[in-house]
Amino acid sequence: MKTESNLEKVLSAGHLAVTSECGPPRGASAQTVVDKAKYLEGVVDAVNITDNQTAMVRMSSFAGSVLVKQQGMDPLLQMVTRDRNRLAMQADILGAYALGIDTMLCLSGDHTKFGDHAMAANVHDIDSIQLIQMVKGMRDEGTFQGGAEIKGVIPKMFIGAAANPFADPFELRVMRLAKKIAAGADFIQTQCIFNVEKFERWMEGVRKMGLHEKCYIMAGITPMKSVGAAKYMKNRVPGMDVPQELVDRMASVAKEDQPEEGIKICLETIERLKGVEGVAGFHIMAIDWEEKVEEIVKRAGLYPRPQV
């Protein structure tokens, strides 16, 4: 074991892990975070706390993670390289670890263009792969990115990264994963999987390079609430691949039955992916639908969560 992370414990014990996410509010209410997180209590092994998701200002991922931790749950601190330079990020890593946060996800972040501060500078002092390297260096070498030694307690983070098997160029996507793993990623959470066939092809490439043995790959799952949501993700969200037949299937049922149809699709996807060699767990991103995660986890046969 590299860390004390609950997620690492679950994964290394060979269980299919489950994570979900909680987006902090666009306000200073601690209660909102607590309320959202409560839906996930006992249902998942770690709760991703997003970092200025879609480049919109929100309560910091750090503060959100601390609030979730205070509820006795395991936060997964997301960190994007868009908003801060390496000094600020390392400072937060030290602070987060000091407050009991031991799991994080290294991302480059959505471009500011998509958010409500399009005029802000995109920092990108380092990229997501260099962030992984930096966190690993802090943990394994006990040094800061600049080379100096970390004094006293060393932050031992279980290091996650994202992968999008559906972005182009497809042939590069396995190599990009290999690079993230070489940089030090311990686990991966993928982009939402709707095009299962394409994901399987990607996993084939992953296995060919033996990457599934070097890193835990958690499949990203998103239940669709409505045909409108399906269309939006298909057409509007960069890097998403929603096949037309899923949109059609959502459209084929009455509006009031669409949420259930969306859940069914997501359960079928989980079932199929359980059979894919190398899939180590599921990351359920129920956007503005956190209350459904428990039902999904239970119906998918992923409940109760193992106590490790």
């Binding site: 390289t81 471009h111 990108h124 792969i129 160029p169 990009r176």
Partner: peptide
Amino acid sequence: AKQLMNGPCGGSA
């Protein structure tokens, strides 16, 4: 647009 030095982000299509 993100000055990435190690490959394309997930938004490349």
